[in-house]
Amino acid sequence: MTPAAAEEAAERRVLGWWGRPGGDWVAQGRQFWGLYARELLKTFRNPWVIVITLVQPFMWLAFFGASFENVPLAELKQLLCGLSNPGCQAAVTSYVQFLLPGVLATSMLSIGMFGAMSTIQDKRFGFMKRILLTPTSRATVYLAKALGAATRGLVQIPVMIAAAYAFGVTISAPAWMWGGWIAGLALLGIGFSALFLAITASSTDWQTPGVIANFITMPLMFASGALFPTANYPSWMQTIAEGNPVTYAALLGRDVVVYHTFSAVDLGYLALFAAAILLIGTIVASRYLKAE
């Protein structure tokens, strides 16, 4: 072997089969895992995060559920289902039951904000420099942050379902339907945290995620079928709701919880949403993710 070839071979061993850092999936996987584990460690070491994660779902259901408590069930059924929908009227047993899928869908909206804030914190304290001074690509950093934030948000799901159970919601649909619904929520969470991170990739300002959260969260929460039936909306809001992924996650869940049916189309829409945002976000972040 010539010295040059020997050196190249040694290089291969260090850098992986493709001989190019960034070309080796195993090596990138380690970088991803390191950053992803860091996100989770940091989050769940903070006792407040745990307390809020556990308490918030109960508060949501308690306050929202209580807001219709004095409405007689017959009137509530008419309000939620409309007059001409006897199937729905038969299935709805309480506002909490109707609400649970919607509350879970909207709670996925806010998790992106935490990922964006932790990224900005890393930029301001210089930790992003420490990361980017290693052979870690911006795309890897982005994916680890987005999935880290989504994972943090997903912890709410089992807690919320347990809370709903405590409020009297029955879990009679088959397990695979529940699994499919939770997968849909996960996709929604990944999509939104990826969206937030892509928008704030070049920002170093603490205030940005909050401003964007207000800007995105409010319209997407109300212009969806998450909290109220869309049939009562004006047509322009119905149009927004029809494209809004929050609606699909809410309807997917409502099918499972209220009607014990499953819509693969809704799940497919959410998968498409998550994949598209992740792809676009990765491209944006590898160009615009700032170190400081």
């Binding site: 850098l15 850092p21 210089g126 420099k129 001074l133 290693t134 690509s137």
Partner: peptide, 17 residues
Amino acid sequence: MHAKQRIGWVAAEVILD
């Protein structure tokens, strides 16, 4: 990336987690 594999860096302001 090749260069980054071969350098270490110590910041003025001490950056650790």
